[in-house]
Design a protein around this nucleic acid. Structure first.
Length: 417
DNA sequence: GCCCATGATTGTCC
DNA sequence: GGACAATCATGGGC
């Protein structure tokens, strides 16, 4: 204790680097009661022991550490040191730690929630799958298969996400506990306030949060990839099922004079076929064009084409100017009858008894069961309808609907469906 | 693998 | 905005 002044001089930097030394602090009287020389000496003694503790053997150090811990001034000294730390470095760090909620993290959380990856299980994103399917359309049975596929994959992602999240949380808790224990243990030998421990826990949590954010980001990416693949898959061309094609063909051929379904009819057809209205529109667009094209090409093959013979539907545009589905020339009847027959053009002979063919068609149509109201109107199959204007007024080719075995030259296949 | 059928897309016209 | 025409891209039979 005699060498106290010397000690204090020999260790001017005791305390925090760059800050007034503790000894000076003490001597200034800012940290201890004035005039308590004995207490100063005690503190100096403790400081000296702290400074030299590393030079001692382990046993000796342990003994000294114990002595220090039991020293009556130790709590007061640590309080002072903690106070200084709070006022200096930690206060600066603390200011930096005040971070607002990360918008990126919020976006990720929202997306994971919306996709059904985070939050409570809600069918593994079936809503998203349904929305995607609805947006892209497609046949019902295929949808259900791909929905389940999508759900299964999303469920996998969800499972991996939650497993990893759990792991991170567990690791975070373990590490936090470990660090807290370590700091509490160390707080016996160096000034560590509970506030500092709390702050350290906060730092650890932030570090783990950033790792979690990476996990969330990866999960979001995986979901996006899955979703885009799903949508791409839906965008691929899929043939409509047979029933849907039959329904569309039925309508087309039973409305051959005016194959332009109204919005209501399109909706009805879409519902019946399990496809979207736009798909119905596409189908009819393709059908009309290919039907005409094919009819035209058949006529060309037979050399029966005349410029004025270009086939026209009673489209909304020409419905006012033309009252018929115009294929008016002598060759038309020939072809029309064959069309009615639903047979291949090749080698087909026009029967003299047109009415008998019509009757056959009536039978075939009646078996299909659809659009009976059109049939009952007796517009399409009346001899008058066929012969009127020498064209195809209200004529239909329903047999193609039920003739999947037609040859390539048939009206059915020729018209693309 | 080829070829045709067919659903979807795109550009143009009215 | 709907229809048409050309075209693309894929499915499926052979």
């Amino acid at each position: 204790m005699d060498d106290q002044p010397r000690l204090m001089h020999s260790h001017p930097g005791v305390g925090m680097p760059g800050h007034p030394s503790l000894s000076q602090h003490m001597q200034d009287g800012t940290g201890a009661t004035e005039g308590e020389g004995g207490r100063k000496q005690d503190i100096g003694d403790i400081l000296q022991q702290i400074m030299t503790i590393t030079d001692q053997s382990l046993d000796e150090a342990q003994a000294r550490k114990h002595a220090l811990n039991c020293h009556r001034m130790k709590p007061a000294l640590f309080n002072v040191l903690c106070e200084i730390k709070e006022k200096t470095v930690l206060s600066i760090r603390g200011a930096q730690e005040e971070e607002p909620a990360d918008p990126q993290l919020m976006r990720l959380d929202n997306m994971l929630l919306a996709e059904g990856v985070a939050g409570p299980e809600k069918g593994g994103g079936s809503a998203a799958a349904a929305a995607a399917a609805a947006a892209s359309g497609g046949a019902g049975s295929d949808n259900s298969v791909e929905h389940s596929d999508y759900r299964a994959k999303l469920s996998q992602i969800r499972q991996i996400y939650h497993t990893e999240l759990e792991k991170y949380e567990q690791a975070c808790n373990e590490f936090t506990t470990h660090v807290m224990n370590l700091l509490r243990e160390q707080s016996r030998t160096r000034p560590i306030s509970p506030k500092e421990i709390e702050r350290m826990v906060g730092i650890i949590h932030r570090k783990f949060s950033s790792i979690q954010m990476q996990l969330k980001q990866s999960t979001c990416e995986a979901v996006m990839i899955l979703r885009s693949r799903f949508l791409d898959a839906r965008r691929k061309r899929r043939n409509f099922n047979k029933q849907a094609t039959e329904i569309l063909n039925e309508y087309f051929y039973s409305h051959l004079s005016n194959p332009y379904p109204s919005e209501e009819a399109k909706e009805e057809l879409a519902k019946k076929c399990g496809i979207t209205v736009s798909q119905v529109s596409n189908w009819f667009g393709n059908k009309r064009i290919r039907y005409k094209k094919n009819i035209g090409s058949k006529q060309t093959e037979r050399g029966a084409v005349a410029p004025q013979n270009k086939m026209q539907f009673l489209s909304p545009q020409n419905i006012g100017s033309s009252s018929t589905f115009n294929m008016s020339n002598s060759g038309d009847l020939f072809m029309n009858v064959q069309s009615l027959n639903g047979d291949s053009y090749q080698g087909a002979q026009v029967g003299a008894n047109v009415q008998s063919q019509v009757d056959t068609l009536r039978h075939v149509i009646s078996q299909t069961g659809g659009y009976s109201e059109t049939l009952s109107a007796n517009q399409m199959y009346s001899p008058q309808g066929i012969s009127a204007n020498g064209g195809w007024q209200d004529a239909a080719t329903p047999s193609s609907v039920t003739s999947p075995t037609e040859g390539p030259g048939s009206v059915h296949s020729d018209t693309s469906n």
